[in-house]
């Protein structure tokens, strides 16, 4: 007997039957919730796997070294998607190089000064709004400002700037969130050691938050590389049968890229054969999967190093 004492209106000896009733209730609820969550979870996983499997099924036969490296031939109806892959990677690398410092710096500012200053709270709200802005809006903004106003034309450079704008808000938010997870005890430890605020931030808080920040950057780039609309009016060409040559002048030229190729290729039926579309689709998925695998790898490596 667990509780043999009278308390309030509950009499001695009644405790056990009361507990038994609650235990049964809890067990029923647990069983119900477990099966409900299990079913929904399984459905989600199956949905995603099914999607990937379908694309892999249609696209895999097309994948080959030729397909990944060669330009399209015979008026886009044959050949590979080499320039599209290269263009996507170029766009992504440029956006990465520009958006990372801006986004991380913004996130640091918000995390450091965010609570005290009204200006920073306003900034946070605006950045959050920007992060939820549809990509097409960035595309049109890029067209109006970079392409037309700054006279950059439809070019890799204009694409970089637009994608940077597109990526920065989410990097700012994830950096800020990652920095907020740094335990106050660590910050206190750094300050008590005589480190300045910047040293504490740089030596203690940023390393601690790094996996979260990197994951945010990679996820944001993954989203960017798959979006057609930000680069639609700012950087893209569809028709290309030449090898891309890299040089300074590439900056001022439009580039082919996978999402735009997919969109246009599908919109103009009869030109690009379906198997090429499937192949490009699979390639794009593999590219984002690769990015995500990179994110996971970074996380697990740093976690092992720091033993969280």
């Amino acid at each position: 007997m667990m509780n043999a004492v009278q308390s309030g209106s509950v009499r001695t000896g009644e405790w056990e039957s009361l507990a038994a009733r609650q235990d049964a209730r809890r067990a029923r609820k647990n069983a119900l919730l477990t099966s409900a969550f299990g079913a929904v979870g399984l459905a989600t996983v199956l949905l995603v796997l099914g999607l990937v499997a379908a694309i892999a099924y249609h696209g895999a036969p097309t994948l080959s070294w030729e397909f990944l490296t060669q330009p399209p031939r015979e008026g886009m109806s044959a050949g590979g998607v080499g320039p599209m892959i290269l263009g996507s990677i170029l766009l992504m690398v440029g956006a990465f190089l520009m958006a990372t410092p801006l986004g991380v710096f913004g996130g640091v500012c918000l995390a450091e000064y965010g609570e005290r200053s009204r200006l920073m709270r306003l900034m946070h709200a605006s950045v959050a709004a920007l992060a939820g802005t549809p990509p097409i809006v960035y595309g049109l903004f890029g067209l109006a400002i970079f392409v037309l106003k700054f006279k950059l034309g439809v070019s890799l450079l204009a694409g970089w700037l637009t994608l940077t704008l597109f990526c920065v808000p989410s990097i700012v938010l994830t950096t800020e969130a990652a920095l907020k997870t740094v335990p106050a005890a660590l910050i206190d430890g750094g300050l008590a050691l005589g480190l300045s605020r910047w040293q504490t931030l740089w030596r203690i808080a940023l390393p601690y938050a790094l996996p979260g920040i990197l994951t945010g950057i990679i996820l944001s780039l993954g989203r960017a590389v798959g979006e057609a609309t930000p680069v639609l009016f700012t950087a893209s060409i569809y028709y290309t049968t030449a090898e891309t040559t890299l040089g300074w002048e590439t900056l001022r030229q439009p580039v082919a890229n996978l999402p735009y190729y997919l969109a246009e290729g599908y919109r103009q039926p009869g030109v690009v054969p379906e198997r090429l579309i499937w192949g490009a689709c699979l390639t794009l998925i593999l590219l984002t999967l690769l990015l995500n695998a990179g994110a996971i790898l970074i996380r697990s490596r740093t976690r092992r190093r720091y033993l969280w």
Binding site: A185, L186, G189, G190, Y208, Y306
Partner: peptide
């Protein structure tokens, strides 16, 4: 401090 707070390094 009261609670040990080694840095994650």
């Amino acid at each position: 401090f009261q609670k040990p707070n080694p840095f994650p390094m």
